[in-house]
Amino acid sequence: MPSPETAANAIPIGNASSSATVLLQARRLGFAIDGRTLWHDLDLTLRAGERLAVAGASGSGKTLLLRTLAGLEPVQTGELIFHERPLSNWSMPAYRARVVYVPQRPALPEGQVEAALRMPFQFRVHRHQRFPSNRARELLAMLGRDEKFLQQRTERLSGGEAQIVAMLRALLIGPDVLLLDEPTASLDARAVGAIETLVESWLRAQPQRACVWTSHDRQQLQRISDRVLSLGVVA
């Protein structure tokens, strides 16, 4: 059972042991927007195998926290450390190839779903790997979609389908850490279950993986996380 904790002292509970490798660490992170402090002195340690949930009311900065962890927002105060190296020592593309953020409302390029899935493999940072075509079809099948889905145009996808494509795309490039921002917000119950299973099997497939979720659904947070980081608890 996860328990709410304050941002300042999130302690791991559940099945991730405190001896596991630390993948991602945030030290004394602070974020202010338009003169309003969203959080400060936020410490966070994400260990291999862990599933961390970020909870908090709307406007508490859950999305901004994930975006900061993804390196999409500049670190205002504090520091981020990934694999024992500060973020400033990482080349951003290399870091983001391993710590992948999936936004709540994914924006996909115009064109077919398959092209959208293949797109990241054109980036220099992924050029050493080839598009895992079979794996894509496998994962798609797990989500209850067939081959035809790959030929659909992204402009015609529903919000939920776009989330599925974005999730799939993130998984296919093989990250170490997934940052999932309300990844199932527009999905029906069956698809929610499928996504949760998918992330779970991805997480267990290799030891050096971890993920961070945000969700408004308390029951879901209990299902999918080992511990909860509550934003907006500390003043």
């Binding site: 999409l72 593309p93 983001r96 953020y101 990241p120 980036f123 940072v125 795309r169 993130a170 490039i173």
Partner: peptide, 16 residues
């Protein structure tokens, strides 16, 4: 900006 940031989040350089 959504598409641009999706690209960046997946490891694209700013130029890409």
């Amino acid at each position: 900006s959504g598409v641009i940031e999706s690209d960046l989040a997946l490891g694209a350089t700013r130029w890409e």
